[in-house]
């Protein structure tokens, strides 16, 4: 497996990070699933790897692809496309796994492609509109316009919740929203 390792911009430039915080600016890593743009807090990102083969875990929700070996650590890999109710990703070498850490746990997120590092004024982040029946997917933490398009910001701690057996009602609402 050839792993393409991207250096961590956040760690590389503490000065910039500080500046970002001072001005109410936050940095995100944005990535694509299909045509949709998503972003996660750069501070949660540990590294970005090329797609590697995973070992499937039995009897798990479909979006849990399995586990991978990250230098001796066993890390579960989530297929985000599937997590958002858009079917399984047909993973190939062009796909990327973003290794994140949230709530003391590491996880890999399978995405189509990593796009950019975004520096966003937190004031510009809008809340996600609630779905019709009141409950919106709580792992979507906000929407922010970037150029012509918009990017959905994910709340990792909600996305990688323990027990991850998301109630099906909630999942169907995601689909309605999507």
């Amino acid at each position: 497996m050839t792993a393409t390792q991207a250096p961590l911009p956040a760690e590389a430039s503490p000065a910039r990070q500080e500046k970002a915080q001072n001005g109410g600016m936050k940095q995100f890593i944005s990535f694509k699933i299909g045509e949709e743009g998503y972003a996660i807090d750069i501070m949660a990102v540990r590294e970005i790897k090329g797609w590697t083969e995973t070992t499937p875990l039995p009897n798990q929700p479909e979006y849990i692809l399995g586990v991978m070996n990250l230098r001796g650590i066993i890390v579960p890999v989530y297929d985000l496309r599937c997590r958002f109710g858009m079917g399984l990703t047909e993973a190939s070498r062009s796909h990327a796994i973003i290794i994140v850490s949230a709530q003391d746990r590491m996880a890999g997120l399978l995405v189509d492609a990593v796009s950019d590092i975004l520096t966003i004024d937190s004031g510009k982040i809008c809340p996600v509109p609630e779905a019709e029946c009141g409950a919106s997917a709580d792992y979507l933490s906000g929407i922010v316009p970037v150029g012509e398009t918009m990017v959905v910001i994910l709340a990792l701690d909600k996305l990688l919740v323990r027990g991850h057996g998301t109630p099906s009602s909630q999942m169907s609402e995601v689909q309605q929203a999507a």
């Binding site: 083969e53 039995p58 586990v67 070996n69």
Partner: peptide, 21 residues
Amino acid sequence: NFDAVRGISGATILGDGRVAL
């Protein structure tokens, strides 16, 4: 990094670097 999985007590890394349950 994950939850308990029924029927699986843990994992290991094989000689080829892959994970085996």
